[in-house]
């Protein structure tokens, strides 16, 4: 992992990787869609179970992206890797988008099942709070003009966010048990009917590959952008 911290080596290493990732994401997504619509209807939820195939991967990758953001922030803060900040920055938007998709598909699932667009289920509430973490992170980056300083402050917030996530998750679960309402969206628990596994796992892999493709492409773009901006600034300084 440390070898990749050097931008040049990272760019060389990922150059062949990126097209592969995009191709894998595309194929897996098509395959996953195919499985999703050939899976049998759930005896209880009928066809709405097909929403699960886009809801669960989005929620999982929303959390995974924040882990990537948090770990990158740790490397940016503690080891001051040049690439780590670009990695944290590149994970933010995709992560927020996945989390937003999880919320949208979650409420589209809740309406037919429980009659309300929003359900205060512990997991859905945590996904919503995770979305707020993303908003806070992106607001901080946007609010500080000096890019280098914004990067360092964002690294602190990214790491603080990562440390606080399990605590927030615990407090929401604890809050949920207070109200004794059984968790409404049980579908992605162990009780998944075997017939749905191929669709769910393929979609999960598809979303995972897509996130990696978005993330690595984002980092490469950031490396190029910084080189060009620095070159222009040097040229301007000489003028």
């Amino acid at each position: 992992m440390f070898g990749l911290a050097n931008p040049q080596r990272f760019m060389a290493f990922t150059r062949p990787l990126v097209p592969l990732l995009w191709a894998a994401a595309g194929v897996l997504l098509a395959l996953g869609a195919w499985f999703s619509f050939t899976a049998p209807e759930d005896y209880q939820q009928g066809d709405t179970v097909r929403i699960m195939f886009v809801h669960v991967p989005a929620a999982t990758l929303g959390l995974g992206a924040y882990a990537a953001l948090g770990v990158s922030s740790f490397f940016a803060l503690v080891f001051r890797h040049a690439l780590a900040d670009a990695a944290a920055r590149a994970a933010a938007l995709p992560g927020a988008a996945f989390t937003l998709l999880a919320l949208i598909t979650g409420s589209l699932w809740g309406k037919p099942m429980w009659g309300t667009w929003w359900v205060w289920d512990a997991r859905l509430t945590s996904v919503f709070i995770l979305f707020l973490f993303y908003l806070g992170y992106m607001a901080l980056r946007a609010a500080i003009d000096d890019e280098a300083r914004a990067a360092r402050s964002a690294a602190v917030l990214g790491l603080v966010g990562l440390i606080n996530l399990p605590i927030v998750r615990f407090s929401v679960d604890w809050w949920n048990t207070l109200h004794q309402r059984a968790s409404l969206i049980r579908a992605d628990g162990p009780s998944i009917d075997g017939a749905f596994l191929p669709a769910l796992l393929t979609m999960m892999a598809a979303y995972g590959a897509l996130f990696l493709a978005l993330w690595i492409t984002g980092i490469r773009t950031e490396v190029d952008r910084r080189r060009v901006v620095a070159a222009r600034a040097r040229a301007a300084a000489g003028a």
Partner: peptide, 29 residues
């Protein structure tokens, strides 16, 4: 069936947002 109003928007919005993300990333790259 009667769930069409929920399943298709769920898949539709997901694919649109993912498509926009991919497009934005590739264009910037």
């Amino acid at each position: 069936g009667r769930y069409a109003a929920f399943v298709w928007p769920a898949w539709g919005i997901s694919l649109i947002v993912l498509g926009a993300l991919a497009a934005r990333a590739l264009i910037a790259a």
